[in-house]
Simulated scan of single mutants.
Amino acid sequence: MNIAFFASSLVSAYWNGAATYYRGIVRALHERGHHVTFYEPDAFGRQQHRDIDDPPWAQVVVYGAGTEAEVLRTVEQARGADLVVKASGVGVHDALLEAAVLQLQGPNTLVAFWDVDAPATLDRLHGDAADPLRALVPRYDLVLTYGGGEPVRSAYLELGARECTPIYNALDPSTHFPVAADARFEGALGFLGNRLPDREARVEEFFLDAAQRLPQARMLLGGSGWQDKALPANVHYLGHVYTADHNAFNCTPRAVLNISRESMARYGFSPATRVFEAAGAAACLITDAWEGLEQFFEPQREMLVARSGEEVAAHVAALDADAARRIGQAAYARVLAEHTYAHRAAQLDALLEGRSQPQEVAA
């Protein structure tokens, strides 16, 4: 298939937490014989903070997003693709893109909405009956989501989606894997995540509270936006951590921490990309508790679960090198067996099989 993908960025993870998800999915689709053209706007300084060059497994088209006319000309370039994807959270002209890609729908072109932040999107749609996306959801041939399980699927079906299927985060073993420790990232616990409105309070609860309880332990905080946040003295702020350093970041501290954003924790079944990246590096992961975790990993054997900063601190205090290594190796075996992007791309292929004739829906 020829696939046209409109999303935030494939080449830059700068203020773009979905980058590694896109890379894993697109590379795996390429390996299954599909051709992907990835359309991304020149916005938010992402092109100035690239993590990778244009990859051989996708054609990257960077378009100017200064005017609606520029965006519409770019959308027209995708006409004739077998599958057109509009991802959520492009960041500029999202409403325009959501409507414009539907004009590409035809007898041989499926158009999908791929929601990489379904809990936030659904909260927005439920809170605003006049949101333009509400009227568009039933017109897409299918809705795909980054996660969310049955709660998200049911919510989209109630909004009129013809079909909604989660394509969960996963591991790309070619980019995330065990490496040697790096002295820059030595510490008892590391957390990597950008500062976002529905994440900050949970970072305070699970990470900063744990740091205050273990004042002699060196804690690492990576991600954009935390530079003016009051931090405990034992928290070392790293700033933006480029994806080239993610393996070392995951492999070096005694443990790494996953903290779900508030909306994702509320819906459940939404493991962050970094859960699988950490497992792929054989890291010992401590995660906040969220519904559906057992569907992906076995708690206490393949990763540790905490319901508060106090429990995070207790896990860190109790961990020795042998226990951390044992947990990390168990997670590594599980992720390779069940949760790679090759598994997700095969799922998507099976979902799309036989769908070359989309239904005609009046505008």
Rank of each mutant, 00 (worst) to 15 (best):
V60L: 07
E150H: 07
Y146M: 01
A265L: 11
L238W: 07
F38L: 06
N250L: 12
T67H: 00
R195E: 01
A321F: 10
H126E: 09
L351G: 05
N247K: 12
A183H: 02
S8V: 10
S154I: 04
A78V: 11
A317C: 01
G222W: 08
F38T: 05
D128N: 12
D131V: 10
K86S: 10
G239A: 05
A161I: 02
Q212E: 15
F249W: 13
R46M: 10
A217Y: 04
L192G: 09
A255F: 13
A183W: 01
A81P: 00
A306K: 00
D51G: 14
V116Y: 01
L220R: 08
S270N: 07
A170L: 04
D182E: 14
S154M: 04
A170W: 04
H240S: 11
L159K: 03
Y242K: 15
L125Y: 10
A4S: 15
A65T: 01
H126G: 11
E298K: 11
M219H: 11
Q295W: 13
Y242D: 03
A318D: 11
A78L: 14
V275F: 03
F249D: 04
P358A: 12
Y21K: 08
L214V: 03
A188T: 13
M303I: 10
R195A: 04
P55K: 13
Y168F: 08
G223M: 08
E70C: 00
D172N: 14
A318M: 09
R79C: 07
A283I: 05
L214H: 04
V75H: 01
G33M: 03
D53M: 10
I167Y: 01
G309E: 06
A217N: 01
F297M: 12
R50P: 06
D82A: 06
N258E: 10
E200W: 14
V143C: 05
D53V: 13
F44P: 00
H176E: 15
F185Y: 15
G147K: 04
A323T: 14
G149C: 02
I259W: 13
V203Q: 06
W226M: 06
A78Q: 12
Y140F: 12
S174L: 13
P197Q: 09
R50F: 09
E163K: 12
D82E: 05
I52R: 07
L110W: 09
A272C: 12
P232Y: 00
Q105H: 13
Q48G: 02
N234W: 06
I259V: 15
A170G: 02
L157N: 05
Y14N: 07
F5V: 03
A43S: 11
P232H: 00
A317V: 03
L110D: 08
P138A: 07
N250R: 12
H246E: 04
